[in-house]
Amino acid sequence: MLSALASRLNLLKQLRQGNFGDAVFKILAYFFGLFLLFITLFIMYQLLFQGVPAIREFGIGFLWSTEFDPVQQQFGALQFIQGTLVTAFISMLLAAPIGIGIAAFLVEIAPERVNRIVGFLVEMLAAIPSVVYGLWGIFVLAPFLRTYVEPWLIPVVGWIPGFEGPFRGYSVFTASLVLTIMILPTVAAISRNVLQAVPRDQREAMLALGSTRWEMFSKAVMPYAKGGVIGALALALGRAAGETMAVTIIIGNARRVFTSVFDQGATIASVIAGNFTDASGGVYISSLFLLGFVLFILTLSINVVARLLIRATSTGPTNPTGGF
């Protein structure tokens, strides 16, 4: 097999020609390129492998058990899957209009110079470390929400199922808001790239029919860019699902199913990060690994879908970080 690979790469030919340097160069390049593949698979394998004791103990039922009892050594994933999906979806729904609005501002409205400055500022928003958002969220945003937002928000939405009960600073809702801020740059930056890839003639065609700028955007630009924008949102969703530190600090880490977003909860990432240091016993640690594997598969599938969508619509190389 090795020899087949070598002939595929023309290595033997290069060696015969005394082109030793190029052969080594090629081998090294291939090695590190394929290392990307290898490491991804290896991470997946390692998480699963370390999770085997938990799988032996709980089987597939681990996924829909809501038990989390270190004393009895009983563990399940459902409430954390709930927390992950709920926070990720809320933040994506909030970040979608704002992020697309920013992208629209940058592409359709702002003049060159404003564009560059605002683009830079939005990127700064992405550069702030997760843990700093966490600190800010718990000591600044949570008290702010309790003092200024809760008094009028609760009477308005308090009767809706899922929004009931008292508002706590440490809550699913607060965590979702901070996640919104954190994924906003992803939505804005990739949407901007996608909107910019919409050909100018589509805009001109709509304008020449006597459309306003908004009509041009909503009727010609957005339909054209739809796939890519959905991809951007999916990517942001994946990012929100995997985000750890800020959520761990803010969400309260209540290891049970929550019935209101104003209640405390936990995500897969937050329960791993929050319980890791006091995890004792093989099954406990193993369960955390298994949770990590679930999270890995979840974010990986979201990302694959997102990348496929973006690839289909965006032109030019896309920056993996979604930067400007």
Binding site: G33, L34, L36, L37, I39, T40, F42, I43, Q46, L47, Q50, L235, G238, R239, A241, G242, E243, T244, A269, I272, A273, L288, F289, G292, L295, F296, T299, L300, I302, N303, V304, A306, R307, R311, T318, P320, T321
Partner: peptide
């Protein structure tokens, strides 16, 4: 490989830590 690299950029850092 390119596709995996793009996807890998979205893998949660906590998963890498566990690994």
């Amino acid at each position: 490989v390119r596709f995996i690299a793009d996807t890998m950029a979205g893998i949660p850092s906590i998963a890498v830590g566990l690994f």
